[in-house]
Amino acid sequence: MQAAVDDLAAAVGLSVLIEDQHQQPVWWSTRGAVDDTRVRTILNRRVEPAAAAVVQRYRLMQATAPVHTPAIPEADMWARWCMPVRYEGRVLGLLWVLDPEDTLTEAELPALVECADLAAEAMAKSRRSGEERLQRRDDLIERLLRGPDEEAARELTRLENLPPDARVQVEAPAATGGWPLPDGMSAHIAGGRERGATSGGPLPLADLGEAARRAAATRRAVAAGARLEKVSWDALGAWRFIVDAPDSLTVRQVHPGAEILVGQPRDDLMTTARVVLDHGGEVTTAAEELHVHRTTLYYRLNRITELTGADLRTGADRTSLQLALWLAAYRATAV
C-alpha cells in the first residue's frame, strides 16, 4: 500500500496522505513543501481540532468523489483534495492530496479514487485480521480463566509476541494498558520491574485464572471491610483465612456470637464489634472512629457481651469472633 501511495504522489507531483477513520496518519508520501497542518499531523500523529473541523464543514465523510477544499489560513491548511476511503459503504479513512497551486487536473482525479479503493481493501483486510486476532486472544484468555492451560498459554504467548516465561498480574478494578477481563478486571504482563497489583505478585501466564481469582477475592475483602496497607493479595494477611475458607465452614462454627450480632435488627452492635476488634480492643481509638461517646461504647460492649458471651476487651475468644465477623461480612459482599 505504501508503494501505491508513492506511485500516486509521483504521478501527480503532489504530497499524499491517507488517514484512518480517527484521522490518524497511516501512509504518506511527500513531494516538495507541505503546510504546517500536514507537518504536525505526521509528527504528532494526530489532527488538531481546527483541521479536523474541515471534515465536518465540507461533509467529506459523505462524499462519493474527490472534493476540493480551499486554503484555510487560520488552520494552517493549503488547498487540497480529499477522497473518502470507503469499503462496503463504510468510511475507513480519508485520502488527502495537497494542491496549493491548483495543478491537479480533472484527468488525474480517477487516480485518487483508485488509490483510495486500494487503501480500502488494505484497511479492511487489516481490520479483519485484527478482529480475528482479538477474538482468538479473547478465546485463549477465556480458556485460561477456567483453569491452568499450558497449551493456551503457549498459543497466547505466540499470538501476543510475549517472552516464553511471561508472567501475569490482574488489577481490580481494571487499569489501562491490559487485557480486559470479566467483572471489570484487567490482566497485565509483568515487566522487568515488578508492579504492585490487586492479584499480588506475578504468576505464570498459564495461571491467569488463579491471578484473577486472587484479584477478585482481594477486591471482595476490601468491600467487606478489610483494612489493608495496599489493595493487594499479598497484603491480605489474616484475611487469607477468610477468602480461602471452605464453603462448608459456617460463621457459627467459627464463633456463634457473630451469627447473633449479624442477626440483630440494627447493625450498630455488629459494627461496634468489628471496629473494636480491628483495633485490638482499644476503646478510645474505636470510639473516635465510631464517632460515639465512650459511655455509649461501653454500653454497646456490655450489650455485646450479654448477647454473645464474648468480652471484646480481654476475652480469650476475641480472635474467633473477629474472624467470624470477617467471614460473615465477606460472604455477604456481592462477588
Score class of each variant (00 low, 15 high):
A75N: 12
A175H: 12
A119D: 10
E108R: 10
L104D: 05
A190R: 00
R313C: 08
W239H: 05
D99V: 09
A273R: 10
A4C: 02
P173A: 04
L269A: 05
E259S: 07
V55P: 02
Q253Y: 10
V276D: 10
A226D: 09
M77H: 07
R146L: 07
D183P: 02
R318S: 12
M77G: 04
A197Q: 06
A216Q: 15
P25R: 03
E106H: 05
M270C: 13
L134A: 15
A107L: 14
G130V: 01
L17R: 11
L140S: 02
W81Y: 15
D149C: 08
N302H: 13
L109M: 09
L14H: 15
G13L: 10
V292D: 01
L307F: 06
Y330D: 01
W326T: 00
L60V: 12
E306H: 09
R318Y: 08
T69S: 13
S15R: 08
E74S: 14
S15T: 15
P180V: 01
I242Y: 02
T103P: 00
G280I: 04
A197L: 08
D165T: 13
T295F: 09
W233F: 14
V91G: 09
A206I: 03
R300Q: 12
R80D: 13
T103H: 12
A152P: 04
L236Q: 04
V254F: 06
L159A: 04
Q24M: 13
G225C: 08
L203C: 01
T218H: 05
L181K: 05
R219D: 14
I189Y: 11
M270P: 00
G201E: 15
